[in-house]
Simulated scan of single mutants.
Amino acid sequence: MAEYQGIPINYDILPDEVKAAIDRDVSQHDFSLRLREGGTLTLNGSDLVIGEPGYEKNTFAFLALDKLELKNGAKIVTNGNTVAIFVNKLHSENCSIVSFVGNNQRAKSGTSGVADGESGRPGAPGDSGGVVAIHVIEELRGILNVNLSGQDGGHGGNGVKGTTGPEGPRGGDAADSNWPLPGCKHSGGDGGRGYTGGPGGHGGDAGHGGQGGQFFLYNVGVAPIPQASYSFAAPAGTPGNPGIGGAGGDGGRGGDGGHGSTYCGGGNRGPNGYQGVNGDNGAQGIAGAAGAAIVKNLDLELVLRRLP
C-alpha cells in the first residue's frame, strides 16, 4: 500500500509494482493476480503529476493495481499526456483527473524583441488535453470529475520600434566672390532631409488552442456505469493573443546647413526624415476542437485485448 498526503508527486516515484507492464497474452487468472500485486494507491489531498506538457512530445503512463483511492481534493494531472489505468476498485471522493493546472493551462508565450526593429517570437501552440483510459474491473464508487481541456495557445511576443534614420546630408558651404568687387558668390546650402526611420518589428503570431482530450471509461461486467459516477468536460483550448507590431523608427535629423562666409549667409537645417513603417501585428490563432468521452461495458476478455 502506498499513500501520499498533501504533497504533489510525479509518476516516476510511484511503486514499481503499480507501473509494471502486463503481457498482452496474460491469462485472466494472471491478470487478476497482477492487479492484486499492484496493491492500493491512495492520493489524500495530493496531486499525481504525469510528465510535462508539450505540443511536440507525449508521455505514456501506465498504472495497474488493486485499488485506487482519491480523497480530499486529490487530482491526477495528465499535462496532456496519455494515461492508462487498470484497477479492480476505484474510489473517488469527488476528486478529479485534469489535463492542465496553474501556469500550464496556457502554452509558453513568445518572447518580445529586444534590439531595435526586432520581431516578436510566435506563441507556442496549445497541447491537446490528452487521452485517459480507465478500466474498472470490479467497482467504481463515488464521483470522479474528468476535465481534459485543451491547453490555451501562447501569446505572441511584441515587436520593437524601428531604428532611427540616419542624419541627412550637410549643406554645402557659402562662397565669396572677389571679382569685380568682393561679395557673395552663393550662400550656404540647406541641409538634406533626414533619412527614413527603420521599420518596426512584426508581432509574433498567436499560438493555436489545443484540442480537447479523449476519455475512455470501461466497466467490466453487465451493470452499466451510473451517470452520477463521473462528470466529463473537454473544451477546446483558446488561442493566444497575437503580438503587437513595433512602431516605425523616428526619421533621422535633418542635415546641418552649410556654413556662411564673409559676405554670404549660411544654409538652413534640413527637415527631419519620415517615420518608418509600423510592424504588422501577429496573426490570430485558431481555437482547437472539443474532446469526447466514451463509456462502455466490456467483458474481461476484451479488456485484456486493450492492454498497451
Rank of each mutant, 00 (worst) to 15 (best):
Q5C: 11
I7N: 14
I13T: 08
E17H: 11
A20V: 14
A21Y: 11
A21F: 11
F31C: 09
S32E: 13
E37M: 14
G39F: 05
T40W: 01
L41V: 14
G45F: 10
D47I: 07
P53A: 12
P53I: 12
G54M: 12
N58V: 07
T59Y: 15
T59S: 15
F60T: 14
K67G: 05
E69M: 03
L70W: 07
V83Y: 08
F86N: 05
K89H: 13
S92I: 01
V98D: 05
N104E: 14
T111V: 15
V114A: 14
A115C: 01
G117V: 04
G120R: 02
G123Y: 05
A124N: 01
D127M: 14
S128R: 07
G130H: 07
V131E: 13
V136H: 08
R141E: 12
R141V: 05
I143D: 01
N147G: 03
G150V: 12
K161V: 09
N178W: 03
W179N: 09
K185C: 00
G189L: 07
D190S: 10
R193D: 03
T196Y: 00
G197I: 00
G198Q: 00
P199Q: 01
G203D: 06
D205C: 08
G207N: 11
G221K: 08
P226Y: 03
S229A: 13
Y230F: 15
S231C: 02
S231A: 06
A234H: 10
G237N: 15
T238G: 06
N241C: 09
G245D: 10
A247H: 14
G248D: 05
G251T: 04
H259G: 09
S261A: 14
T262R: 07
C264T: 00
G267Y: 09
G273V: 12
N278I: 08
G285F: 04
I286N: 13
G291F: 08
V295N: 06
K296T: 07
L298G: 02
L298H: 06
D299R: 09
D299L: 10
R306P: 00
